[in-house]
């Protein structure tokens, strides 16, 4: 198991640091998260380098989904939620007073576990919905539409039926539509919360291809349950674990190292399939 995973991880050529996306990236410093009294996540510090893909892995309930939701301030929608620490986007704290939350979410896009195209809109309207929601003006909508669908790897399949309802697509296509929708507002960072967990293996592969293409131009953080997936798509991997208390980040390293030479015993146990 270890060998095969590390092979996969090594096969994916880690990008040369010279190819860099815009901005100075996203950084989490000492992030804690609570649900009412329940301390769900403790002291996570992570630096997401621009233009890289970071995978967050770990067993269920380890706080990785909670963590990703603190990054674009979706965490605070849960009643009773609280957090501590800082999340820096281009060096500025996104939780600082006076910050426009909606602007933060424009810069840090998100793709959810289940595909959720807006039911009342067509495919085309779905892609461009972010512009309307955030009241962003764009000169040429048709170009943007094509570009986003192209980048999400969906253009060829839907270009003749942009007026159809989003719900008429297959699950995998819907998820790529959601990716295209997130791209349309041109975020610097894209957060993906188990984007393939509701999809079949074929669709999963298509999404993974898309992720690799996208990482040329943006920073991607992906939560996944699937270690092979982490090995296939990511440059670095963070392993999260909860020992009954709050979830913690155990180890953060380049993906090939996590799967071949994990430093922590617990990481090794997890990636070799001894638990989780």
């Amino acid at each position: 198991m270890t060998s095969s995973l590390s092979e996969v991880a090594n096969a994916h050529v880690t990008k040369a640091p010279s190819i860099r996306a815009a901005g100075t990236g996203l950084e989490a410093r000492g992030v804690h998260a609570w649900f009412t009294k329940h301390h769900a996540l403790a002291d996570v510090s992570l630096d997401f380098a621009p233009g890289t893909v970071t995978a967050l892995i770990g067993p269920s309930g380890c706080g990785k989904s909670t963590f990703i939701r603190t990054l674009n301030r979706m965490h605070e929608f849960i009643p009773g939620a609280a957090m501590a620490g800082e999340v820096l986007l281009d060096g500025k704290d996104v939780y600082a007073p006076g910050v426009d939350v909606t602007k933060i979410r424009l810069q840090i896009g998100m793709v959810f576990q289940k595909p959720n195209p807006f039911p009342s809109m067509t495919i085309g309207e779905n892609v461009l919905s972010g512009l309307k929601l955030a009241q962003v003006k764009v000169d040429n909508k048709d170009d943007l539409l094509e570009e986003c669908l192209e980048r999400a790897g969906l253009w060829k399949e839907v270009k003749d039926r942009l007026g159809a309802h989003g719900g008429s697509l297959s699950g995998g296509q819907q998820q790529r539509l959601c990716i295209a929708r997130a791209l349309a507002v041109r975020p610097q960072v894209l957060l993906m919360d188990e984007p393939c967990s509701a999809l079949d293996p074929g669709s999963t592969l298509r999404i993974e291809e898309t992720i690799r293409h996208l990482s040329d131009t943006m920073t991607i953080v992906i939560v996944t349950h699937n270690m092979q997936q982490a090995a296939r798509v990511s440059d670095s991997t963070a392993f999260f674990l909860s020992d009954g208390g709050p979830g913690q980040m155990i180890e953060f390293a380049p993906t090939s190292e996590i799967f071949s030479r994990p430093k922590d015993k617990r990481t090794e146990d997890y990636v070799t399939g001894r638990f989780g």
């Binding site: 804690h32 403790a42 002291d43 501590a84 910050v99 939350v101």
Partner: peptide, 16 residues
């Protein structure tokens, strides 16, 4: 892990 900080007070106001 030894010191757990107090939760942050979020003071950002929603848009008008």
């Amino acid at each position: 892990m030894s010191t757990v900080p107090a939760p942050r007070e979020l003071t950002t106001r929603p848009r008008l």
